[in-house]
Computed example of a mutant assay.
Amino acid sequence: MTLFETDLPTMATSIGRSTADDIWVQGYNLADELMGEVDFGSVFYLLITGRLPSAGEARIFNAVLVALADHGLTPTALAARLTYTGAPDSIQGAVAAGVLGAGSVFLGVFEDAGRVLTAAAPDAATSDEELDRLAAGIVENHRSRGARIPGLGHPFHKNGDPRTARLLAMARELDVLGPHTRLMLRVQAQATSPSGKPLPLNAGGACGALLCDLGIDTAVLRGVAVVSRAAGVVGHLAEEARAPMGRTLWYLAEREASYEPRR
């Protein structure tokens, strides 16, 4: 019996399919029910969760995508621009270079914060007292290991991330501030830096908590951040095409970096 003659498990997908006349996405007719009727963020949410978001959920999800789209000449943007400098005929490679650095320092905070919060397993019935106890446990666990709590602190917004304030205000207004975000706020209230100073809740932490409350699986939280940042990367590449700085960055590194042989 060959490999192809063995019994294989049944495969199924609910994401999408095409016929001669129609295209279906999660049970919706793409041309008739989604195009021109639903914004991109809501379709993205549909693809991830299998359902369209409510009006409040859609506003928060779209706000999360906007919050992380871009914030300057970050390493992701520089990686994309420098890759484009060497391969302007391959913009997809430059976009990929810009998002491949999603990790514990950049963009991965979504997932890291979400995993910490979901491990505590808060739900709508969790009392404020229990949330305080869970938050204390999270803070003590990280403190005892000398580990940073994902989602807290920011290199620039020392007095509070403006994106966080806006997202939380929207969540309260739309009544979608759920147990994960409530827990994240209690963690932030109890945590301090090694010097004893309060740590602000950054946009990554707020977004991770809010997305958990929206029912997004932690396995794809970083993917949401990557899709958001990809839009900003394409914006940087559009600018790079008309006003290049890649070669200047290259020459700057050549000029400023000294050669120091190890032997």
Results as ranks from 00 to 15, higher is better:
149 I>P: 04
215 G>H: 02
257 A>D: 10
36 G>Q: 13
246 G>I: 12
98 G>C: 11
203 A>Q: 08
256 E>Y: 09
1 M>Q: 10
256 E>Q: 15
80 A>Y: 04
156 F>K: 11
158 K>L: 15
126 T>A: 05
158 K>F: 11
81 R>V: 11
164 T>H: 08
146 G>L: 12
137 G>Y: 14
22 D>L: 09
240 E>Y: 14
64 V>S: 11
47 L>R: 04
250 W>L: 12
166 R>V: 14
134 L>D: 13
1 M>K: 08
253 A>R: 15
47 L>M: 14
4 F>L: 15
126 T>G: 02
61 F>R: 07
258 S>L: 13
120 A>S: 15
49 T>M: 10
178 G>E: 02
162 P>A: 06
82 L>D: 08
211 L>Y: 10
14 S>P: 00
20 A>F: 05
122 P>W: 07
42 S>H: 06
67 A>C: 12
213 D>G: 12
217 D>M: 07
16 G>R: 02
14 S>V: 01
114 G>P: 02
15 I>D: 00
228 S>A: 11
149 I>Q: 12
43 V>K: 07
235 G>C: 07
110 F>C: 04
214 L>M: 12
199 L>K: 00
120 A>V: 10
56 G>E: 06
135 A>P: 04
14 S>I: 00
3 L>K: 09
136 A>I: 13
80 A>K: 02
51 R>G: 00
229 R>K: 13
128 D>P: 03
177 L>K: 05
141 N>K: 15
205 G>W: 00
227 V>S: 07
113 A>H: 04
95 V>H: 06
103 G>P: 04
257 A>H: 10
141 N>Y: 10
209 A>M: 10
3 L>V: 10
